[in-house]
Amino acid sequence: MDGRQGTFWGLGLGPGDPELVTLKARRLIQEADCIVVPKSSIAGESLALEIARPFVGDKPVLQFEFPMRRNERELAPYWAAAAAEIADRVGRGERVVFLTLGDCLTYSTYCYVLQELRKTLPESVIHSVPGVTSFAAAAAATSFSLGEKDERIAVVPVPRGDLGPVRRALEEYDTVVLMKVAKQLPAVVRLLQEMGLDGQAVFASHVSQDGEFITRDLASLLDNERGYLSVILVRRRGGDGR
């Protein structure tokens, strides 16, 4: 493309509200030659693409499916295929942007595609733009202070099996952000009840999206399936974990 050097940008678009997309991310989308978005096998259109629609216009969009699995060996071919297409376009001088929910470097598929791209592209053409995380948006929506003075904060993905790592984080840190709650939601609620922390927690799902749900009544979630795209904020004292 006229001898121009191609570039690749990973863009965090925030949790869902288009007004939370940074000015830089918006500009880069508008300047891009090609838009790349991840798509899960269980969803319809990519949520990231829905957020960016007002800025995409008629630009070509490549949607890569990434199955909802945890086995890295099974997922590796999907990451490699996306990276190969991106690298080819960057090599031809295109400006390519990869859109993700939240922050692009926080529990994002982008991280794995980035690892693949570093095998073939120079660091000078690879860039990342931060976005508002779901837990920052949840804290703002509930005026929940994540940390004050010298308090310690932990961001913990909820494991599928034993909740020992979650218990230890809750015992050790002043504020704990629980992510990837999913089907473990009832078990996490029971653990918080056992530790006497359920009254100092906030549950939020689909923050700033259609279907947003926020509650402090964690007991109401015991027979609930709201764990997808959710976060739980837990604070041992004050701020207003209550």
Rank of each mutant, 00 (worst) to 15 (best):
Q5R: 14
G10H: 06
P15R: 09
P15I: 02
L20A: 03
T22Q: 11
C34T: 15
I35P: 11
I35W: 04
P38M: 08
K39D: 06
S41E: 10
G44H: 12
A52G: 08
P54N: 09
P54M: 08
P54Q: 05
G57N: 13
K59W: 12
R69L: 14
R70Y: 12
E74T: 02
Y78I: 10
W79I: 00
A80N: 08
A83H: 03
A83P: 00
E85D: 14
G91I: 07
G93A: 10
R95C: 04
R95N: 06
V97R: 01
T100S: 15
L105I: 14
L105M: 15
T106I: 15
Y107V: 01
L117W: 06
L117D: 12
V125C: 08
A136Q: 12
E148T: 05
E151M: 06
E151P: 05
E151C: 08
R167A: 12
L170H: 01
E171S: 11
D174L: 02
D174S: 05
T175P: 10
V176Y: 03
L178P: 02
M179G: 06
K180R: 10
K183N: 14
Q184R: 14
Q184W: 00
V188W: 04
R190N: 05
E194D: 07
M195Y: 02
L197T: 01
L197G: 03
A201T: 00
V207F: 03
G211R: 10
E212C: 06
L218A: 02
L221V: 02
L221R: 01
L222R: 08
E225G: 09
R226C: 05
R226F: 11
V231H: 00
V234N: 02
V234I: 13
G238T: 13
G239R: 15
R242N: 11
